[in-house]
Design a protein around this nucleic acid. Structure first.
Lengths: 194, 194
DNA sequence: CCTACCGATCGGTAGG
DNA sequence: CCTACCGATCGGTAGG
């Protein structure tokens, strides 16, 4: 099956690229670096991908889709805003934990997308953030949350989620659900003892 | 005064570089980009700086020093852990707000430092984070904070501080002190109404 | 997947 | 601060 072989090899290229992009950044990673990591010549990469940027596009949009899908499942549910926030956070962390490297690239390297991809990406991201913001605003209107600055609240949450690929070790003692519960707990209940 | 003129021109180069590094990233910013932004030829940059990386070094270590100094002022104070955390956060935000662009570069581009600068930088960063962590641990031991996962707590705080240069508008309605108080309040008291 | 190669651009230097 | 340039490396193509 030629098709399946090509697909799997292409994915192998994308995964290896993802690791290099995370480590060194997109711009500082050359196609020769990538080829060397795969044990082939740089020119051979172009049998599997059209361009360097195509790899970044594949990574960024695949992750964006996964994060969007995860959040959508929570929005319809008939539950409290605290619970909705908790599930949104846990869902995000699950997606992230399954693709830690791609998540880091998604977060830090998307600015190297060219137009119109960059614009599309940023629209998806602002949409994602706004949906979390709506949950927080809903909680405030319902009297469940304090009247905090919603931009600060959502940015604090989003920052925390974004930075996790840099320090979270999924093989450690704390699993994604537990991490999500603890983050949600901390943001909702605060650090202070009652 | 030749000395003063050189210094001021060098700082102008560093500031312009800082803006480009923030926008496009260190690797994707060429010396020709920088020269063009300053209205001179690329070769002329080397009258003011020794190398591209020297600019990054100057930026990163200057900001690191400022953040360290800001935190040091809080650690000696004889105040509650909540208050210590609050002042640590507010201090960080003040430093950041005064040099928003350099703060963004400090955060996102330090990985392009070569050795031994990279190692020194990372040691300073881990030291900075650990000092915030100590405040949180102190608060837990004193019964002032809940027994949360301190790594998650400090990373959430640190992420939030790091991401601020990307969204905070210091010319907006919320000033640095107010932003610090709100972030500290949110982390300490939580979103939930009591 | 390789050899052979392209034009463009990179950070930086010499010498004024 | 400029002109003139350097060797190295970049992403990518032709042709097998």
């Amino acid at each position: 099956m030629v098709g399946a072989e090509n697909l799997s090899r292409k994915e192998q290229v994308i995964r290896t690229a993802s690791e290099l992009f995370k480590q060194k950044g997109y711009s500082a990673t050359s196609m020769r670096d990538l080829a060397q990591a795969l044990g082939i010549e740089a020119a051979s990469l172009y049998s599997h991908i059209k361009s360097k940027e195509e790899i970044l596009q594949a990574l960024c949009f695949e992750m964006a889709k996964r994060f969007q899908r995860s959040l959508r499942e929570v929005e319809g549910a008939d539950i409290s805003y605290s619970e909705r926030l908790r599930r949104g956070i846990t869902g995000h962390i699950h997606v992230m934990a399954k693709e830690l490297t791609a998540s880091a690239v998604f977060m830090n390297e998307h600015r190297h997308l060219s137009q119109p991809y960059l614009r599309d990406f940023l629209l998806m991201r602002i949409n994602y953030i706004n949906r979390f913001k709506k949950i927080i605003e809903g909680g405030i209107k319902a009297g469940e949350f304090k009247a905090v600055d919603t931009k600060l609240a959502v940015m604090t949450l989003f920052s925390s989620l974004n930075w996790m690929p840099h320090w979270y070790d999924p093989s450690g003692i704390i699993d994604p659900s537990e991490l999500g519960n603890q983050l949600a707990g901390m943001l909702i209940e605060g650090l202070k003892t009652k």
